[in-house]
Amino acid sequence: MIAPKRNALQQLVYLLGLYRIYLKIYFRTLIEYRTDTWVALIGGLCAQASTLTFLTVIFQRIPRLAGWSYYELVFIFGLAATGRALNQAFLNVPYSLNGYIRSGMLDVFMIRPVGPLFQATGMSQEINGVGSALTGMVILIYAASHLELHWTFAKGIYVAVALISSMIIQLAVLLAIVVSAFWILEIRSIIYPVGWLYDFTRYPLQIFTPFIRGLLTYIIPFALGSFYPAAFLLRPHLYSWAGLVVPFVAILLFILTYNLWLFGLRRYSSASG
């Protein structure tokens, strides 16, 4: 069957509709395997609680860390952790792509009339992330309620923009690694450590050596999706540049990686071929 011609807007509506169906399917599996769902939610909750305990125990002993107060640190942590969890929940696709390539599922995606990346994304929801995201948001709100941030509508919008940027920056970085799986099939062990680098950005960047700071700002810019937007919300005058740079870098990175992905896809020869 040949896909009907659609303009950009029609295509967007069509894809959103499809994504809704993917979510519906996923939701049904969640209800079907109820114990699994509970285990996943509790797992996510434990993970966030564990790091929060770490922060709390430590910061009972010190008033400030590199100029940041306890609640400011919790705020940074909450924003970073929520971005990570949302990425895991909805854009977990880089982790599952390797499996799709190995099993030949990618070939199946390629003969269907929608982009393979979209199909893979639709099939890669991860409920563990939802538990963490909910906990992350509670932590974020808890910290915000103890800080005098003078919330405005614009700031609220910026939190959403920052979280989406964070998701996209992580997706772009990890996807770039997966594209190399078209040439090197053993990628699983590299993608995990790179993903974990993100955990560094849950702390104020000032505590790290210049090398780590540079790495997380310029080379693998995870910090642009976590520490900098949080710092911008906390100290707008000091980090004013982050306001626009964050969403801009996210869009730019996504365009770059998406083209890399298309390039890789053209060069792709099936794993089982």
Partner: peptide
Amino acid sequence: TNAQGAQIA
């Protein structure tokens, strides 16, 4: 069947 969730916890 969610060994990953149990593992994370």
